[in-house]
């Protein structure tokens, strides 16, 4: 069965750590980092990379358009 694998890239300097992507993610992939960006925000990052399915829910709700989403079909 084909499986869908996804990945996100966060524009960490644009991220304001509003946490909305973390809430929107159905697979609990995203978390806020302990590190901060230049503005002092704990930017979002992929904590659980394997679980991402590239649904882009995080990118839709992101108010600052920080998230780029990639998706690929993997044949098993």
């Amino acid at each position: 069965m084909a499986k869908i694998k996804g990945a996100i890239v966060v524009n960490t300097e644009r991220c304001k750590a509003c946490n909305l992507c973390v809430v929107a993610c159905p697979k609990d992939v995203i978390a806020l980092s302990k590190e901060v960006n230049d503005k002092g925000y704990n930017f979002a990052y992929m904590q659980n990379e394997d679980a991402c399915v590239g649904c882009a829910a995080c990118a839709y709700v992101c108010p600052d358009a920080c998230i780029t989403v990639y998706k690929v079909k993997v044949e098993e």
Partner: peptide
């Protein structure tokens, strides 16, 4: 993850109409 992040697999990205100036709105 490097094999997923390729231009041909792109699903969603920031629109080009939106400038790179950081939006001054509060987080969220």
């Amino acid at each position: 993850i490097q094999n997923i992040i390729k231009p041909e697999n792109l699903v969603y990205t920031k629109s080009k109409i939106l400038t790179d100036i950081p939006m001054h709105y509060c987080p969220g």
